[in-house]
């Protein structure tokens, strides 16, 4: 709720919804996605209809409505990566994780995304793991890279996490 309070404090009155994107960014940074409950709370706090919030939420591809995997793997599909083995890298990851782009592994450890141009076109193909960018990634590099980003394992789902990673 802290994020909402800060943003709402700054943007009260007639321009209440001008802080909407900022608030949504805040919520996503806090939860990894924008939970419906939080969106409803935001709607009350800013006095902006929930439909207005979802209208904006669903327009921008950066916002997620469902909880993502704990580690996000983003494969770049910009022009340069598309030409230079980006699709091969994506296939390798799909096989390795057994999921399609936009999905998370069953244990919630990994999220696989395809993103539009990360701006590292001279280093194709490019993979971003959370905020860290890796360049010239070959499918054989994947185990090494993923080892550097071990998913934080919940005690109860310990076994699941190992079976997929």
């Amino acid at each position: 709720m802290k994020v909402i309070d800060t943003v709402a404090g700054r943007h009260s009155g007639s321009r209440a919804d001008s802080g909407l994107l900022e608030a949504l960014h805040g919520l996503q940074a806090e939860h990894g996605y924008v939970p419906r409950q939080e969106a409803m709370a935001l709607s009350r706090r800013l006095s902006v209809p929930l439909a207005r919030i979802f209208e904006v939420l669903t327009f921008y591809s950066y916002f997620r409505l469902e909880e993502p995997g704990r580690i996000t793997l983003s494969v770049c599909d910009g022009t340069s990566c598309h030409l230079q083995e980006g699709p091969v890298l994506l296939n390798a990851l799909q096989e390795l994780l057994g999921i399609k782009p936009g999905e998370a592994t069953a244990d919630g450890a990994y999220q696989l995304n395809v993103v539009r141009c990360l701006g590292c076109c001279s280093c194709s193909p490019v993979l971003m793991v959370d905020d860290k960018v890796y360049s010239h990634v070959e499918p054989t590099d994947l185990p090494r890279i993923m080892k550097k980003h071990p998913p934080i394992v919940n005690k109860e789902s310990n076994d699941d996490a190992h079976s997929t990673a």
């Binding site: 599909d77 910009g78 022009t79 340069s80 539009r116 141009c117 701006g119 076109c121």
Partner: peptide
């Protein structure tokens, strides 16, 4: 908002 793929 440099969105053009291939530009950085």
């Amino acid at each position: 908002d440099e969105g053009d793929p291939g530009a950085y």
